[in-house]
Design a binder for these strands. Structure first.
Length: 884
RNA sequence: GGGAGCAUAGCUCAGCUGGUUUAGAGCAUCUGCCUUACAAGCAGAGGGUCCGCGGUUCGAACCCGUGUGCUCCCACCA
């Protein structure tokens, strides 16, 4: 069979993915093997594949393929997340483009559009993962709004409500005026902004001279002011506490009160209190029994609905419907017009923004559903202990602290969203606003009957739906129906899962909450290890984003370089938890690696028809065989160890070097027969075996090319994808050391050739002066071939008229036609000599130090003595050479 | 404001509990090669005050202190 010049991934990748699928290799059913489970972090249905997914899923695929090859029952579960707020925003946008307003639709009509959208776009990302070679059990694909999943979320809500952990209450929440919904604290992102501090004077109500000046960044909230607060120990304001002042524009009389909360150092030391629009103000308001007057509607526009009639004047009527940021400037101008704006100052502050819409968050008093997290985590001490005690291991471990800190400062979780796309809150209200929480209307009616003695109540379900994360926290259980059908065979077999691979950004959103849910509902951790990936950035270290246009099209990259090369490129420089700087040159390196292996295959295949049973050359070649076998085993142990520690990119580097350097550059060259010469059959067969093993080790990282080469090497019945790896045998350290020495000699003598400008085709003659002639017997012919030497002989004395070099403890005399560059040789030897002398000095210094000799461990001391002896010996050899 | 982490070759990073040859790899660079698997390649080479300063120690890239510069997380001082 003719092999193409370079590796051509496209067809081969397609071929193998369908082969693996047709054979059901990714499918898992419980059996008597040890399970190895990963649940994929479900991407949003709105998503398309980007570099972050690529990194994340490549890592998972490496782990799961490795487990499969370790003989475990590997199960990797795919799925998608309904992503309540993100998806709803997309659907609303899509409708707007079609000229349909969400407000013109009923809930049912809107949801019909949303499902239509989900069916159309929701599966795209999963299809893209197949291109990357991800070995997911597709039959298990789960969606967080599948009927059973939906029911399990509702059931969880009902249970937690019954236990008094979920409650409904009027609280200050983070309000997103763009999507008109409440958000949890985690969904608010604080950003630095340049703003202004406005100094506004409130005149005294009794008409006395002056007034009190406050500094505020938000003049628009003045309309909701109910008090001015100062620090009780602030001398400046001692006399005014208890007095009343007039709020500018709205002309409301409000008291001056005192509270320790106020920082006398900030601004003027006087704080205006707006309980309806600020969390801290709200607390102060409650403490001091103040009203909360809301002046902004759900979209962040001014409304006078909650103001008392007598406070509404013409100016205020003219504010109706004005957006908060326009209003800010307008009110500032109006206050300035009446001479009560003292000054404005530039101010650097922070504002909270919505993670999804980017809108600036309003603190808003709102009736929402909450989870009492302190109470919840107190129900099971394992929730806090699991990570600290490393029952659940974080990689890298530094995220333990982050987790612990969050747990210790946990706040109530606002779980209701004013959205339709999601699990609708199972609370049922009658006309008088009484409510019960139940799985369905029928049960709700029964409850109304027992609780309120109302038969056949007319009930209406809560309009709102639940936070997306209130469903995804059940993911590792419910993908195996562990909530909807507890104690089924699958959940018993697959749970707890082994690994979670995810981004540190969602440690609170998701990881922490899965741990809580896992311990609560299964009394068991959801996963043993959490591998936190870094953020994929561009070459300059910038986050990849649509607006910067620095986010490459992954599918185009796969087309261009092949999936294996992309996987290689993204993995080669991505240690756990570190950001990765994505550079297309890494993909080139991956593609080049493909070609390297492909060409090695071509070389080996060329020999296939030239196999003969040969005795000549065989003896020295056994050195290459014995060495490579041991080297292979050595690396297999090392890779195994690295993978156990989740050092994936380290492992890949080691394998890369094993294949490129050890196998291609050294081993194949050592056993390579001369031009059109036959190769020994035994050597050929061993080589095919080694090559197959190399493909086996690399397979989890680069599944397609390895499977292809594995099969092209010889006629194999099995597939690499499901091959179970053998145990590594013992390692012969002696031969590894001898090979290292041989490599050093080859490189050293090649360097001599280079420096003396001996042309590659020109042969040399080498005379070796060594104490260990026997060692050279097995490597002699390899050495001769590798340095293009016509002959190798052993001598006891210097050979005149040759180039002399010292490698290790042996001297080499090189006979050549070239004129001798004695000066250059001398320089090199002297350089080496200086280095050794410097080294010897440091060693001698140590050894002559009494305290070192007294304190150092015996093996350290022995080592230093050996270093000294070695150095002295080498120095002597070089000095001998120099004297010639 | 609180906490965590990082700083090693031009770039990206290894270097585990202090001693293994006066620091390693990949990429990039330079030199020589179209050598019969591979120029997307081969062979070889150069390149570092291990961020600064101080300390502990017989011995520090590694431990401690301090300064500088980055990064991230948490926290609504209006």
């Amino acid at each position: 069979m003719e092999l193409s010049k370079n590796f051509e991934p496209q067809e081969i990748e397609k071929k193998w993915y369908s082969h693996w699928m047709n054979n059901g290799y990714f499918k898992s059913v419980p059996d008597d093997r040890e399970p190895y489970t990963i649940v994929m972090p479900p991407p949003n249905v709105t998503g398309v594949l980007h570099m972050g997914h690529c990194l994340n899923n490549t890592i998972q695929d490496i782990l799961i393929r490795r487990a499969r090859m370790q003989g475990k029952n590997a199960c990797w579960v795919p799925g998608t997340d309904h992503a309540s707020i993100a998806t709803e925003a997309k659907v609303v946008g899509m409708l707007r483009e079609r000229g349909i307003a969400k407000s013109s639709l009923s809930r049912e009509e809107f949801l019909a559009y949303a499902w239509e959208w989900k069916e159309k776009y929701g599966g795209i990302i999963l299809e893209q993962l197949k291109k990357m070679g991800c070995s997911l059990d597709w039959d298990r694909t789960t969606f967080t709004m599948d009927p059973a999943y939906y029911a399990s979320v509702i059931e969880t809500f009902v249970k937690l409500h019954k236990d008094g952990i979920i409650y409904r209450g009027l609280r200050m929440v983070n309000w997103d005026p763009a999507s008109k919904t409440a958000l949890s604290d985690e969904e608010v992102i604080f950003k630095d902004v340049d703003s202004k501090l406005y100094y506004v004077t409130y005149p005294f109500a009794d008409g006395s001279e002056g007034g009190i000046t406050v500094a505020t960044t938000r003049p628009e909230t003045i309309l909701g002011d109910v008090a001015i607060c100062v620090n009780p120990s602030d001398e400046r304001y001692k006399n005014v506490v208890g007095k009343e002042v007039i709020v500018p524009v709205i002309e409301r009389r409000i008291p001056i009160i005192a509270d320790e909360y106020v920082d006398a150092e900030f601004g003027t030391g006087a704080l205006k209190i707006t309980p309806a629009h600020d969390k801290n103000d709200n607390e102060l308001g409650r403490k001091h029994n103040l009203r909360a007057l809301n002046t902004l509607d759900a979209e962040g526009k001014f409304t006078s609905e909650e103001l008392e009639d007598d406070l509404i004047n013409d100016t205020i009527i003219s504010y109706a419907g004005i957006d908060r940021f326009v209003l800010r400037k307008k009110i500032a101008a109006d206050i300035e017009a009446i001479g009560q704006l003292q000054k404005t100052e530039d101010y650097k502050g922070q504002v909270g923004t919505s993670e999804r819409t980017g809108a600036i968050i309003e603190s808003r008093l709102s009736l929402q559903w909450f989870m009492d997290m302190k109470k919840f985590i107190a129900t099971n001490p394992d929730i806090s202990a699991a990570v600290a005690e490393e029952k659940i291991k974080f990689h890298p471990a530094k995220f333990k602290n982050t987790y612990a800190h969050w747990m210790n400062n946990i706040k109530d979780w606002c779980i209701s969203r004013q959205l339709w796309w999601g699990q609708q809150i199972p609370a049922w209200y009658d006309e008088e606003g009484r409510y019960v929480v139940a799985e369905n209307e029928e049960k709700a009616k029964e409850m109304f009957n027992t609780q309120f003695s109302i038969a056949n109540a007319q009930l209406k379900q809560d309009e709102d739906c639940l936070d997306t994360w209130f469903s995804s926290w059940l993911w590792p259980m419910e993908v195996f129906k562990g909530i909807s059908h507890p104690d089924n065979e699958e959940i018993k077999y697959y749970y707890p899962t082994q690994n979670l691979v995810t981004a540190p950004e969602i440690i609170f959103f998701w990881v922490a909450r899965m741990i809580m849910a896992g311990y609560t509902y299964k009394n068991e951790m959801p996963f043993e290890n959490v591998y936190f990936t870094g953020i994929v950035r561009d070459k300059q270290g910038r986050k990849m984003s649509k607006s910067l246009g620095n986010s490459p099209d992954l599918l185009a990259l796969i087309d261009q370089y092949g999936a294996d090369a992309v996987r290689f490129g993204i993995m080669i420089a991505s240690p756990a938890g570190n950001d990765i700087l994505f550079d297309e040159s890494a993909l080139e390196q991956g593609r080049n690696f493909n070609n390297k292996m492909w060409n090695a295959l071509k070389l080996v295949k060329m020999w296939e028809s030239r196999c003969e049973i040969l005795d000549t050359r065989h003896e020295t070649n056994t050195f290459a065989l014995r060495w490579f076998e041991n080297r292979l085993n050595e690396v297999r142990l090392e890779v195994n160890e690295l993978l156990n520690q989740f050092k994936l990119s380290e492992a890949l580097k080691v394998i890369y070097s094993l294949i490129w350097d050890d196998f291609c550059s050294w081993y194949l060259e050592w056993i390579k027969p001369g031009f059109e010469q036959p190769i020994d059959k035994a050597i050929y067969e061993k080589t095919v075996g080694y090559f197959s093993q190399l493909m086996e080790i690399l397979h989890p990282f680069m599944p397609f090319i390895t499977e292809e080469i594995y099969h092209l090497l010889d006629d194999k019945k099995d597939d690499l994808c499901v091959k179970v790896t053998d145990v590594v045998g013992n390692i012969d350290e002696k031969i590894l050391a001898e090979a290292t020495q041989l490599k050093n000699i080859i490189s050293g003598l090649r360097d001599v050739r280079n420096k003396n400008q001996i042309k590659p085709k020109e042969t040399i003659k080498v005379h070796i002066q060594t104490a260990e002639v026997a060692v050279y017997k097995s490597i002699e012919s390899i050495l001769a071939k590798q340095i293009n030497s016509a002959s190798i002989s052993f001598v006891n004395d210097a050979v005149a008229g040759t180039i002399t070099t010292v490698i290790g403890k042996d001297k080499f005399y090189i006979e050549t036609e070239q004129p001798l560059n004695t000066a250059g040789q001398k320089d090199d030897l002297e350089k080496e000599l200086n280095h050794l002398k410097g080294f010897l000095t440091t060693v001698e210094k140590k050894l002559s130090n009494e305290k070192f000799v007294a304190n150092a461990k015996p093996e350290v001391l022995a080592l230093e003595q050996k270093k000294k002896a070695d150095a002295e010996e080498k120095i002597k050899i070089i000095e001998d050479s120099l004297s010639l």
